[in-house]
Amino acid sequence: MTAIELRPLPVTHDPVRRLAQLVGGLALYGTSMAMQVRATLGLNPWDVLHEGLTERTPLGFGLVTAVTGVVVLLLWIPLRQRPGVGTVANVLVIAVTVDVALALLPAPDALPARVALMTAGIVLNGVASAAYVGARLGPGPRDGLMTGLAARTGRSLRLVRTGIEVTVLTAGWLLGGTVGAGTVLYALAIGPLTQAFLPFLAVRTPRPPGSTAARR
Rank of each mutant, 00 (worst) to 15 (best):
Y29V: 12
R56V: 08
G52P: 02
I190A: 11
M1K: 06
T178G: 00
G177N: 00
A101S: 14
L169C: 08
A150Q: 12
D14V: 07
V160E: 11
L9W: 09
A202F: 03
I94R: 03
A187V: 14
L159R: 13
P78D: 09
W76Q: 04
G191Y: 08
G134Q: 03
R17A: 14
A39S: 14
R215P: 01
Y132M: 09
L174A: 15
T147L: 13
R155V: 07
G126V: 11
Q195S: 13
I122G: 09
M1N: 08
A131G: 12
L28W: 05
A214N: 07
F197S: 01
L79T: 12
H50S: 15
P206M: 10
W46M: 13
V160Q: 08
L73Q: 02
A131N: 11
P15R: 14
L157Q: 04
P209D: 05
L175D: 11
V23A: 04
I190Q: 11
G60S: 15
T68F: 04
A171Q: 05
T153W: 10
T57R: 08
G121L: 01
V168T: 10
I77R: 15
L188C: 09
V71N: 00
H13C: 11
G126E: 06
L59T: 04
L6C: 03
V71I: 14
E55I: 07
P206R: 14
L63D: 01
L174R: 10
L198R: 05
R17G: 15
L75D: 02
G140C: 09
L73C: 10
S156A: 03
L28P: 05
E51G: 05
L174M: 15
V98K: 02
P45L: 08
Q81P: 08
L169N: 09
G148Y: 05
I94E: 05
P199E: 05
A66V: 06
L28S: 07
S211P: 01
P139I: 11
G69K: 06
T2R: 14
L157N: 09
R155Y: 05
A89F: 12
T12C: 07
A95P: 08
L26W: 02
D99W: 09
L102G: 04
P209L: 09
P192W: 03
A214D: 12
I77Y: 07
S32P: 02
A181Q: 04
H50P: 01
W76P: 01
R17F: 02
R7F: 01
A39D: 05
T170E: 05
R207E: 15
L149F: 10
A171I: 10
P139K: 03
P141W: 08
R158S: 13
P112R: 08
A110P: 00
V37D: 02
T212Y: 13
S156V: 09
V123C: 13
S211V: 10
R17M: 14
T205G: 10
G126R: 07
E51R: 11
